[in-house]
Design a protein around this nucleic acid. Structure first.
Lengths: 115, 115
DNA sequence: CTGAATCCCTCACGATACTG
DNA sequence: CAGTATCGTGAGGGATTCAG
């Protein structure tokens, strides 16, 4: 099995590396919503079901520092913060799209239908 | 956000459903190894770094009951157990392959090289 | 409005020992 | 050889409160 280090953490597969960057419950939903438009914090909060401020801000910060997103603070009153996707972020969209398609086909074969 | 139920668990995205089936540390590595050949338990154990018997057997059992793998017990002495991929399992290979490719490209851009 | 800080809890996973 | 049983741990995530 391959094996490599990043940030003092051991990885065994490239897939594992992908999930360390854009895995977890909320990162792909965030990227997906930003794929073709700029969105502010409160809009993300509203559009992603059940996400807490803690998880949303934590994931946004990580996606920014990993280069997938950009953050723009507009000094109005009240303050407005806009998030947009970078080119690196856009490179993740095809794989997310493929995962969605595969998910829908799996659900269909498993007899699950959306509400 | 979409929302649906399966096994009394709530899902919000198709991607989430995919990970509930083939996510976690070992399921994709297992599927990947079985994509073009039949492999027995001890061979899987050897080829997947650091996997414990507990996790390997647990994941194999789930993949079988979810229809991704098939298990064949050969009554020799000592006993031999072979795992093979099903058609449903094979449908997951393209997405795993795409995740691998994306992982390698991410690693390259992040300046990581395999040992 | 946009978060950060704190506390708690669950569950995936690891280690070890044991069995048909 | 191919697992199961048991116990322990840590990281991801939820709820709540506070702050610029």
């Amino acid at each position: 099995m391959p094996e490599f280090l990043s940030d003092n953490k051991k990885y065994y597969t490239p897939v594992e590396y992908v999930f360390s960057k854009i895995g977890g419950t909320y990162k792909m939903p965030i990227l997906w919503r930003l794929k073709d438009k700029i969105v502010r914090y409160s809009e993300l909060k509203k559009s992603i079901s059940n996400v807490s401020d803690r998880m949303l801000s934590k994931n946004l910060k990580e996606l920014c520092s990993d280069g997938f997103l950009e953050k723009k603070i507009i000094a109005e009153v009240p303050v407005r913060v806009e998030y947009s996707i970078t080119e690196k972020g856009n490179n993740s969209i095809p794989i997310i799209s493929a995962l969605r398609d595969y998910g829908f086909s799996l659900m269909e074969k498993d007899g699950i239908n959306k509400k």
